[in-house]
Write a protein that binds this DNA or RNA. Structure first.
Lengths: 150, 150
DNA sequence: TATTGTTATACTCTATAACTATA
DNA sequence: TATAGTTATAGAGTATAACAATA
């Protein structure tokens, strides 16, 4: 019932993906530290850049964080002039979030450095495999978001 | 400098791998629950099966756990007759760990169920991509273990 | 004195619940 | 009364440090 016969004993997917994720996070930590960003702060910057969100709750959900968890993060980023948080005139309960130019710039800088490190790791992989890997990773990632893994 | 020109804006690897890992763990949680195993307990069973280890410290390191963290786990597994923990006659400070037949059986059962779920997820991926993905994942996983991600 | 395993303690991270303001 | 955001509190998970047994 396996793609490759005889290969009944591959490691669990999770047993490889989770540690790899930990390693990737650890690898990008020094980059984040250098710019005074926590992982959550970087996640916020990344997500705000690609899709401006209306509510903090939506942002929290997008990055799989509790809504109470990102508040100190937003406080910090706002005080550093990296994003703005203004009441929506239409519904003053809601905070409109948007990246400042400096916020976008920082995000680009950090992302470039992060991906440079990742490229180094991917360098060990043959180009053909590499493309298939990235494509599949994306597919599985999207799939895992579609259904919250049940 | 990219494999595919113009594709400068791929998501960070970590931003896909980490959530995918979380989803995979969440997906296998019900299976573990059904057998009264925590994630750490399953990690212990898995690692003991493939390579019998001499010391608890070595086991802890192998599964990226603190040595103090696995002690309650070992207590539980031992009391359930899934593994034995005996002092090494050669050096009575050391505890020799080995899976009992029931431990191995449970491990096989759970692993089959876990991988069945993973196969379902992988079913969405074209066979060619799938092989490349698994091969590459394995490569990157090994690489990330070689250097503890610095 | 150094090392394996264990126990006790403290700390960090995360979520729950209570509160304010708008609607 | 219901919802967005915030604050305060409690809980889970983790690591640090002290301890006992053996070498």
């Amino acid at each position: 019932m396996n793609a490759a016969a005889g290969n009944t004993s591959r490691p669990d997917l999770a047993a490889m993906v989770v540690p790899l994720g930990r390693a990737l996070m650890a690898a990008e930590q020094p980059v984040l530290d250098a710019h005074g960003l926590t992982m959550w702060a970087y996640a916020v910057l990344s997500h705000l850049d690609e899709a401006p969100l209306r509510t903090q709750a939506a942002l929290a959900e997008a990055i799989h964080a509790d809504k109470t968890r990102i508040i100190p993060v937003l406080d910090d980023l706002e005080s550093r002039g990296l994003l703005t948080r203004r009441p929506d005139p239409q519904d003053r309960r809601v905070r409109l979030l948007s990246l400042t130019p400096e916020g976008r710039r920082l995000r680009d800088t950090v992302r470039a450095a992060v991906q440079e490190g990742e490229e180094r790791l991917l360098g060990q992989v043959p180009p053909a495999d590499r493309e298939a890997f990235l494509r599949t990773l994306r597919t599985l990632y999207e799939a895992s978001r579609g259904r919250p893994a049940r």
